[in-house]
Structure formats: C-alpha cells, structure tokens
Simulated scan of single mutants.
Amino acid sequence: MDAIPILKLDDVLLVSIQVDLSDQTAMAMQDALADRITTTGARGVVIDISALEIVDSFIGRILATTASVSRMLDADTVVVGMRPAVAITLVELGLSLGEVRTALNLEKGLALLRQAKAIAADEQ
C-alpha cells in the first residue's frame, strides 16, 4: 500500500495524491488526515488530485467524507487539480462531492482557504 504524503504549510495540510487510489489506500489517507488535523490544529486542508486519472464512485465518496470529517474537526477542505475527465466521470456517476469546494490548482485552493479564514475572522 502506498502512503499518501500529508504536508503541513502554516495552518494548512496539503494532501498530494500521486498514485492511483485503491480503496484501502483511500481509507488509510482519510484516517491519517483526521489524525494530522487533530495533532497539528490545522484549519485548512487542500487535497491535490491532479495526478488521478480515474475516480470511481467509492473514491468520490471518500473525498466527500474526508471533507466532512475535516469540517467536523474545524478544518475547511478544498479539492484541487481535478482533471476534466474526472469531473465528467463524477457527474456521469451522479456523484456530488457535497459541500466540498474545488479549485483549478493549488494556488487558487489556498486563496479559497484564506478567503474563508478572513470571512470567519470578520464574523467573530
């Protein structure tokens, strides 16, 4: 099983998926990410799926569930780098990523997280 690296950048965790995800690897990533959020106090998560050529219904659900778990642990999630073919496949499968925000690339994903953080600070 390939481990998915989870890097810390300030208060954001970057998950860079560079291998095709097996169901077991995806579930291990979800558990490892939840642990890292709690141990680091991260407020944001960026999941980079630019290397994924195929996303099936299980992986789509894992991404949505991972974002929900992160949100419950007080970390916003953005999925970045989705290929057009992956987006089309998710739509064809009738899958929604729920409330998961997406961005074209890492830079735009980090900007979304900064924007959400600024809005949250203004509301306090």
Rank of each mutant, 00 (worst) to 15 (best):
L9W: 08
F58G: 08
D56F: 14
V55N: 12
L104D: 00
I4C: 07
D31M: 06
L90H: 08
G60P: 15
M1F: 05
T40L: 12
T40F: 13
R101P: 00
A121L: 02
E92V: 04
V45G: 03
A26W: 12
D74V: 01
K108E: 01
M72Q: 02
L21P: 15
A28M: 08
D48F: 13
G81E: 02
E123C: 02
L9M: 15
D20A: 15
A118Q: 12
V78L: 06
R61M: 07
T66D: 03
V46D: 06
A3W: 03
T25G: 08
V55L: 12
T25A: 15
A85E: 15
A64L: 10
D2Q: 11
Q115E: 15
V79C: 08
T25M: 11
A3K: 10
S57G: 11
E123W: 00
D35R: 14
S57M: 10
L7F: 11
R83L: 08
M1E: 10
I119S: 07
Q18S: 14
L52G: 14
I37S: 02
L9H: 10
V80H: 02
V86L: 08
V69H: 00
P84G: 06
V69K: 01
S70E: 01
K108S: 03
R71N: 03
D74N: 03
R61N: 14
T38C: 12
E92Q: 14
L112T: 06
L90V: 07
E53Q: 14
A42I: 10
M27N: 13
D2A: 11
G44C: 11
T89G: 06
R114I: 09
D56R: 12
I49W: 08
L93N: 13
M72C: 01
